[in-house]
Design a binder for these strands. Sequence first.
DNA 1: TTACATATTGTAAACGAGTACATGAAATGT
DNA 2: ACATTTCATGTACTCGTTTACAATATGTAA
Lengths: 345, 345
Amino acid sequence: MTEKRRSRVTLQQVANHAGVSRATASLVVRGSPHISKETREKVLNSMKELGYVYDRVAANLRSHRSSTVGLIITEIGNPFFSDLLAGVHESLDQEGYTVILGTTFDSPAKQDELLSTMLEYRVGGVIMSPVPGCSVDMVERLKQWGIPVVLVAREELPMRQFDYVGIDNVAGGRLATKHLIQQGHRRIAFIGGFSGSSVWRDRKKGYCEALEQAGIELDESLLIQSLTTRKGGMEAMKRALELPNPPTAAFCYNDVVAFGAMLGLKEVGMMPGRDIAIVGFDNIQESAIFHPPLTTIAAFPERIGVHAAHILHKRMTGETSEPKRLILQPELVVRESSSGIPHSS
Amino acid sequence: MTEKRRSRVTLQQVANHAGVSRATASLVVRGSPHISKETREKVLNSMKELGYVYDRVAANLRSHRSSTVGLIITEIGNPFFSDLLAGVHESLDQEGYTVILGTTFDSPAKQDELLSTMLEYRVGGVIMSPVPGCSVDMVERLKQWGIPVVLVAREELPMRQFDYVGIDNVAGGRLATKHLIQQGHRRIAFIGGFSGSSVWRDRKKGYCEALEQAGIELDESLLIQSLTTRKGGMEAMKRALELPNPPTAAFCYNDVVAFGAMLGLKEVGMMPGRDIAIVGFDNIQESAIFHPPLTTIAAFPERIGVHAAHILHKRMTGETSEPKRLILQPELVVRESSSGIPHSS
DNA sequence: TTACATATTGTAAACGAGTACATGAAATGT
DNA sequence: ACATTTCATGTACTCGTTTACAATATGTAA
């Protein structure tokens, strides 16, 4: 505390020091072409000398622009979202935006709260992964205020009115299930997740389609919901094993659930990939190094983030075309967890 | 685009609608006790009716306060940091702060850039994990402006002038190495990381201390640096195995490196925990589910985040005591990766 | 009734910048 | 030499709040 606490240097002070008016200094700061070289340099020197720092907050207030964007995700804990965040962040950084982050933990109340906060902070745009059962009102409100919103990863409600970037979950479910069928399985469980979410319904739809195509009848008891956590996956798998006629394979809601399921198997002495086949969803980094390595559906979270950021940027700079829907195609990544031959039936 | 784009409702409009002055409305917004119940309700009603939203940006500008804090970390990809982020985020959320995020990828230039940006955005405080070799100037500058800074996880340079929350890396290194020695190992490599970072030096110090205490001489060739990524760990392990007298155990810079090292082992047909013992550092969630489960040193990233947030909050609300140093004690978590008995010597 | 304390509410000047418009000087054309 | 254009800079108002300070209303004691 030996240094005296400096207060903010204002543009006015810079202007005085350089012997020009504040307006001129402002033009210099913003790199206007209507300023002579000499004046520009005079001002720049004064800025350096006084240690001026631009006040983006004041500037945004006056100019009705905003260089911050809000990013609302479910939780950082899930690598799917931290990858998505990385993608968004990197792209927006490049364009000079600053991101403010919020996590909903799938609570609609928290989501509304976050949206309010972002509104209060004058964000220029929002990228969000909506919570299941989220009401469209709040999001509508943002749009009414001219704040563009890009939805990612999940598509809840009739939100066709917004830009959306995600993957084709139906195709993903189909890919996963087909793969298991090709491996010779006929009793395939769909494990984890919550039927309230659009993602679950889509993946299940793909699952059903693949079954139907192979002439396998859907057995509702093989649809085992759970929290989308490791623990949830573990419990769901245990419930599956307790079934009178247990499955020989499982398509898991996502990789995290799949990890849980595999841990559950190991606990009762079964080996995923040998005693029972497992397929996950997302292809998060960990899935390659799990033991056994997890067969999964690549969902490219980082790419989703990059695209969303890109669309948002365009909206924020005035593009007003129809809402875009960008649906990435998932890819099957075969590893060892699905190599097992069914024991029975 | 059928809805008309609304523009911001101002406090003035609310005041007019309620038939009071703007100042009164302002007091209501901020919950001042000097307002009669009736007026308060009148104003609150008008707010609701007009759809008023508080403009925190304008408010902060005027009041010289700020309810945003900057969080600067190395990368989200490493679960250590995403856990830290989760801790910070949760605590600050509760106190009503909003966090803006930046990642340096260990580039000093990027770090300076981020600090500048945060300055421009009038953050009220900063929590950062400094990059190795970072200059103190920029951070000093923040402090001169009265913006409190809390350092986390890494302690670079002579930064005793700042608040700091981290863990005792020396003790951690000692714990890990001691454990391996107790398992009967005498040739123990220290794998991964970069000697330029304070964390590396501290963990190495603990490693050396444990060796010395056991009467084992330090073999410099067993200090194998690498990038702190999975790939880096893999390469480092391969280099270790090519040594004329390879190690029977490895203490890895962190869990991510340890994963890489274990993958490297598997590639050449060796089994971590049987053919060679591995200990990691951080105890990220994945370490429990890796195969084999990783023995590691728990570093409690989330707890670090929570504490840092707490200290920052106190600083932002006026506490001016001496810089605090909060050093958490690491804990050894024994799992299967370190259970191997050394083959030779 | 007058004076005075007390509880409220209003007035007006900030905060630090952007920007339309006016002004002035220099450069050009005739 | 004068009118006209071009370029650079200054004037003055604005964004939506906070906050000293002044002003009003209400109630109470003398």
